[in-house]
Every structure is written in structure tokens, then in C-alpha cells.
Nucleic acid binder design. Structure first.
Lengths: 221, 221
DNA sequence: TATTCGCACGAACGTTCGTGCTATTATCTG
DNA sequence: CAGATAATAGCACGAACGTTCGTGCGAATA
């Protein structure tokens, strides 16, 4: 056995294969759903044997959980992380929304937002997958709400409004963009979401808020 | 064969059983999804034989389509029909939104909005089911947008706004109420949706619009 | 060089799936 | 009440499912 404590060493071949499997699983699940993917078809796509795929996970559920976790990491880095580095207040809040819409536009997952799809799939079936999907949703909702509260704290947003209400409405527009785009394949859904979000934010913006012509909020067109 | 043209005669027993099967299928599918339900488990629930259930439909897909159709009818009568009988303009538009939220609150389907769930399930899989789900979604979106346009036509709403934009935002709030309620089992999601909708409508309401204290729009609390 | 380990394979398990057939009931009609 | 027809049950099938097992092979270790 090699040294037990080499956590950051060059990964052994098995770890690479495992990641390859998870990538394919995420791609498949994004379109067909996390439950619909079967180990057999996964093996077919990967040109591997069923048992070869299976051996990397103790069960199908473990594979599903690992795939969801991989998708969540991708979601965080593609739809959240860049925005969280922005300055607290309106820039960060708008950044979060815009980054999410960009994540949809870039088709990071071919089947739309992975989190929304997975939640819709498992919301009615108690179990570890439902719990993981719910936790992921709460992570996202929490990020938006924290950004709203933070924007109030730095004086960019009127503090009389309920943060949860604004967060709810912003998230509603983002979620609707996902659905509408998948439904009609029409990019105007993103425009409508941005119009709605900008309207909500400018209406609650204070005098201390960065001017809308600045980079924090998009211009008019 | 009985008279070919007795559409409203007392239905033969088969038709009743068929409806019973569809009811159970809709109930199951609402929670677990339209694809996940199997004829075997359906037969188990109904205390029938697999073939007895199967015989009423030419294939599983036909059963799924029939179940979706049955659910759509229920959706129309529970979430649309009452509101469509209201006076054109703001009453009908608000009625549509409120009726939809009530349909969620009453848990007409135990798994939330059947249309949203089915669309999320099949949006990535081309076929008759995807088409039927998309058509149902368009029916609903069309109803909202027509109500908006009609409210503009009768002078209740400002005509400078884009009807599609308002319809998008209203639908976004409704859809978010469904997701948020399923996610946290918290009835405040409905309040937030109503607050957001009322805000949107009152902001665009003209002087000719019925007074907000009237029954057309809810009061303040 | 000998031995152990990591990794993937192929075969087979039992179960469930959807879907045909053929009987056997149940229901309606004349 | 009898005969016809509709409705359900029984049974079997091929395929796919998740899972287990024994095995081979290349690389790392001793």
C-alpha cells in the first residue's frame, strides 16, 4: 500500500475513472433525471462493463448521491462563486442573479438547472436523495437571502422591506427563466427575468446605492 | 357492441374502472412521477391483476397520456375554470392567480402542481408525453397572458407595459410558490406570492380599475 | 524477483418491468 | 333465461434492472 496520508498526491487511476463516470452521470441525469439513469446505460456510454462502473460505488444510490454532489460543486463554481467575490451590497446581489442566468444561458447542464430538476424529481420521495436535493436548494436560497440582507446592511437597499420577500421574488424570476427557456427555447426568457430583477432592485435601491449606470446594475437596453 | 353514439349513456363498467385506474395513476404520479409508476404497482394498489389494468390501455404510454389528460382536466376545473367566469379585466386576472394558489393550498394533487412536475420530468425526453406536457404548460401560460391583455383592453391595466413581461412575472411568482411550499412546507410561500402579485398589479392598475378595497383585489393584511 | 493490491471484466443472480396470449368470469341484450 | 359480448384474471415471455461473485491483468510494493 502507498503512504496512507497522501491526500493531494496525483490521483490513482481509479479516482480518475470515478470522476469520468460521475461526469457522464451528471450529463445524463441533467437531461433524463437522476433516477432514470441506469448503470447499464452508463456503462454503455463509457464503453465499460456494468460491474466496472458499479464497483466504484457501493450502490446505485451512492452513485446518485455522488453525482448530485458533483453537480452541486459545479453549480457553486459556475453560478455562485464568481458573484460572491463581488463587493457586498447591490453588486453582489445583482451578480448572484446575473451569474445564475448566465449559468442557464451557457447551458452548463444541458437539461437546465440541475438543482431545480433534481428537486422536482425527488421532492415527493423521502430519502437521502430528497434530503440532499433540499439541502442544495436551501444553500442557494440562503445565498440569495444573505445577499439581500447584506445589501440592506451596507445601505444599498431600503430596510423597510422584508428580505425574505425580495429573495422569494428574485428567486421566482430566476426559476421562471429556467422553465420558460426549456419550454420555448426562447432566450427572451432571460431578458424578462433581468428586466424583472432590475425593476425590483432599482425600486428598492437607496441613494447610497451605486448608480445604475455603473457596472453593478446593467444599463438600459 | 352497444349503440355507437351513446356518448352520455350510463357508462359500461369498463369505463368506470378505467376512470378508477386513472384516478389512482394520477394520485401516484403526482408524488412519484408519471414515469415511475408501474402497471404492477398500480394493480397492487387497485387490488387488480396486472393484465386487468393493462387491458384498458394499449400501452403504458397510452396510460400515461390518459393520466396526464385526466390531471389536466382536473387542473382546468380546479385552477382555471372558476376564475375564467369572472369579469374581464383585473378581477379575472387576479382570480386566475388566486385560484392557482388556492389549488396549491388545497393540495388538489398531493405532490404539488401536476403540470409543473410533469413538465420538469419530461422536458428532456422528446416524445408524446413531452409534447402533451408542453401543450398543457402553454395552455396555462396562454390563459394568464390573455387575461393580462384583456385587462389592458378593458382599461384596468396600463397599456404601456409588455403583456408578456407581466405574464412572465406573475407566473414566476406562482411557480415559486409551488416550489417553496414543497421545499419548506411553509404556507408563507403563498402569502409571499400574493404580496408580489398584488404589488405588480396595483402598480400597473389605472384609474378605471376596480378599487383595491373591492373584491377584485384583496385587502391589506 | 515474488507478492500483494487496484481495477476492470464477464457471467449470473433474483426481481421487476411492459406486453402478449388464452381462459374465465361478469354484464348486458334480446 | 339464454346467448353474446365486454371485462378481468392467469400465465408466460424477453428485456432490463441493481447486485454479487470469481477472475485476470498491470502496477506498485516488499
Amino acid at each position: 500500500m502507498p503512504h496512507v496520508s497522501d491526500t493531494s498526491q496525483s490521483p490513482r487511476k481509479g479516482a480518475i475513472t470515478r470522476q469520468t463516470i460521475l461526469d457522464a452521470a451528471v450529463r445524463l441525469a441533467s437531461v433524463e433525471g437522476l433516477e432514470t439513469i441506469s448503470i447499464g446505460r452508463l456503462a454503455e456510454v463509457l464503453q465499460m462493463s456494468k460491474s466496472g462502473v458499479f464497483a466504484h460505488f457501493g450502490s446505485k444510490q451512492d452513485l446518485q448521491l455522488a453525482a448530485l454532489d458533483a453537480a452541486l460543486h459545479r453549480f457553486v463554481s459556475e453560478a455562485m462563486q464568481p458573484a460572491l467575490h463581488q463587493a457586498a451590497g447591490l453588486p453582489r446581489l445583482w451578480g448572484l442573479c446575473d451569474q445564475y442566468l448566465s449559468y442557464l444561458e451557457r447551458r452548463v447542464f444541458p437539461g437546465g438547472c440541475f438543482l431545480l430538476a433534481t428537486w422536482a424529481e425527488f421532492d415527493g420521495r423521502p430519502g437521502p436523495l430528497r434530503d440532499a436535493a433540499a439541502a442544495a436548494m436551501h444553500t442557494w436560497h440562503g445565498a440569495i437571502e444573505r445577499a439581500v440582507i447584506s445589501a440592506q446592511a451596507v445601505g444599498h437597499l431600503d430596510t423597510t422591506g422584508d428580505p425574505a420577500q425580495l429573495a422569494f421574488e428574485l428567486n421566482a424570476l430566476l426559476q421562471a427563466a429556467n422553465t420558460a427557456f426549456l419550454l420555448s427555447n426562447d432566450g427572451r426568457a432571460f431578458d424578462r427575468a433581468r428586466v424583472g430583477i432590475r425593476d425590483r432592485l432599482t425600486r428598492l435601491a437607496t441613494a447610497q446605492a451605486p448608480h445604475r449606470a455603473a457596472a453593478s446594475l446593467p444599463g438600459d437596453t
